[in-house]
Nucleic acid binder design. Sequence first.
DNA 1: CTTGACATTCCCACGATGGTAAGGTTTACG
DNA 2: CGTAAACCTTACCATCGTGGGAATGTCAAG
Lengths: 159, 159
Amino acid sequence: MNIGDAAKASGVSAKMIRYYEQIGLIPAAARTDAGYRAYHQRDIQRLQFIRRARDLGFAVAEIGELLGLWDDQSRQSADVKRLAEQHIAELDRRIADMRQMAASLRVLIDACAGDDRPDCPILNQLQQAQDEAPLMPETGQGQCLSATSGCHAGKKRQP
Amino acid sequence: MNIGDAAKASGVSAKMIRYYEQIGLIPAAARTDAGYRAYHQRDIQRLQFIRRARDLGFAVAEIGELLGLWDDQSRQSADVKRLAEQHIAELDRRIADMRQMAASLRVLIDACAGDDRPDCPILNQLQQAQDEAPLMPETGQGQCLSATSGCHAGKKRQP
DNA sequence: CTTGACATTCCCACGATGGTAAGGTTTACG
DNA sequence: CGTAAACCTTACCATCGTGGGAATGTCAAG
């Protein structure tokens, strides 16, 4: 089974398969006389594992840990669960960040006439920090628009 | 005002200020005799604009468009609003993707004993595609775990 | 005058993925 | 058998936004 077939069978592109091998996520594949990588059912399974973990948003480093546990017959399911919970916590954090952004932006959008005149609360808001948060909806949490209040969680936008 | 002060005043790191200049997001700063970049209130305002837009999750390219509209006194607020709506739509899409991932993972986590035994539904699920979706909660939507059903929206994880 | 805090440019790195180019191999068809 | 298509290989570059560091130059305070 060549890399192209392995790619089709696993849903991981040939490019990525080589990359995963390079970074050590998968062991170096066997080679044919011509130097072609040869894959077997076992390898396909590992690639599928990787792709499903990617689909769940696990980073490659986390997948490495999952694979380690997968390979470890004496693992404790608690270890796997802990990893997954860490990951879901990270997902939740990012979701919260983005919802915050979306909420702030929604307020501005709703305040914008969207006609042929130049006046625009969106630009106004971006232009100058307001002292407090006058445009915020009453959702309890601050909306992270002001430059004050040190709420610059925006750092890890696509971490 | 040197770049360090501009950085402090705007909340944009000196590194990023130079980068924004390099990619043309801000005009090349004036220079002192020694070659130091010199910033004025006007420039600070532009940098603050950029930082706030970043905090709202706008990509640098989008910020470029926003700045163009900001500079254009004859702009139509509809154009700004359209940009913002495109961006919020993108945010919503990413949020939905991540919520999907989190939901799928939550199901697996809840099914995992998390004790000292090796059996783990999380690894089992990653290991082999199930034909149908037996573990799914009844939330109506499919949970995008199966390798079948072509639901690999996972591609644009951090786009 | 020295020292430390700045500034400059240039290069490298990340993470995960895609593209492309130059060259070798295998396969299918006439 | 010959040739062309379809594959494989490595190697390099790009993305996007950000940080780190080196080598070197400048400014301000002691």
